[in-house]
């Protein structure tokens, strides 16, 4: 029981991190039909900026804030330099964002040095709580809480605010929103920046939990995020949460029992979804996948 719960908590924490990348990806796709292959790179940047800021300020909150700001800025730069010039051309978008992904991860090596950075947790988040025979690692609990809170905030913003209404309407039919006199491009830039910031925050949260930050983690988690977006359904935020938890949990359990098969199980999950429900578990009306 103890083992089961620990593995489950571990898996949920991983799932939450993947969700932070995937929800930006899915909204960006739903809004503008843009699939940003560079999104994982922001995860890695968040991790490095977080570790660097923590080293300077010794404050966990400030390091998270630094990562979020870096994410917002990088999101703006990406949108302006990379997405805008090839706006409307799918194949060029896919090609160019992959190129930018590689530039982003190589730039990390230029800015922060080619070596793996060690990341540490603040003392008050180190250690674990014991409930009977169940041990809960404090930091993982923090990731889960932060992830859930962010999910609730995103859903509340989408459901109950005017901006959320515009974004949801834009996902369904952007031409209509545009026709109603709303500058959809501005909305898109905003969503792009917030999505990038969420990915960066995910990276900053991940680094202390694994103890290291390395440039290749962007690609690794980026691939997980793509799988999650496919499983959850393009454009759906709740879908990406459910799919991220599914992937996180299956990965967590498999990594313990047959670590070699962890990736394969995730892929099999995706294959099953692609065969039987290619539009994903949660279909959003208006977002076509054809």
């Amino acid at each position: 029981m103890d083992l089961f719960l620990n593995l489950a908590i571990n898996g949920i924490a991983t799932g939450m991190l993947i969700f932070l990348i995937a929800c930006g990806l899915t909204l960006i796709f739903g809004l503008m039909d843009v699939l940003n292959f560079a999104h994982g790179g922001l995860f890695a940047w968040g991790a490095f900026v977080g570790v660097w800021a923590y080293g300077i300020t010794q404050s966990f909150i400030l390091s998270m804030l630094a990562a979020v700001i870096a994410g917002l800025l990088l999101g703006l730069i990406t949108e302006y330099l990379i997405i805008k010039p090839v706006y409307g051309n799918h194949i060029q978008q896919i090609l160019i964002t992959l190129g930018f992904m590689l530039v982003l991860s190589e730039l990390i090596k230029v800015v922060f040095g080619p070596n793996i950075l060690a990341a540490s947790k603040p003392p008050y988040l180190d250690g674990s709580w014991e409930f009977g025979d169940v041990t809960v690692i404090k930091y993982r609990a923090l990731i889960i809480v932060v992830g859930l809170l962010l999910f609730l905030v995103i859903m509340a913003v989408l459901k109950f605010t005017k901006i959320g209404l515009i974004v949801r309407a834009g996902v369904m039919n952007k031409e209509m929103v545009q026709a109603l006199g709303i500058n959809i491009r501005l909305v898109f830039i905003g969503v792009f920046m917030v999505g990038s910031a969420l990915a960066a925050l995910g990276g900053a949260l991940f680094a202390p939990s694994s103890g290291v930050a390395y440039a290749e983690m962007g690609m690794e988690f980026g691939i997980f995020a793509f799988i999650v977006v496919i499983i959850g359904g393009m454009g759906s935020v709740p879908g990406s949460l459910v799919a991220a938890l599914l992937v996180g949990l299956s990965n967590g359990f498999m990594a313990y029992y047959y670590s070699d098969l962890a990736m394969a199980v995730t892929m099999i999950l995706m294959f099953i979804v692609l065969i039987f429900r290619p539009e994903g578990l949660f279909r959003v009306s208006g977002v076509s996948n054809k």
Binding site: F29, L35, F37, H90, I91, I94, L98, F226, I227, V229, I230, M270, L274, P278, S288, N289, K290
Partner: peptide, 10 residues
């Protein structure tokens, strides 16, 4: 049979 993104991701 899906959008070109899917083949790239897969």
């Amino acid at each position: 049979r899906l959008k070109s993104h899917y083949y790239a991701m897969l």
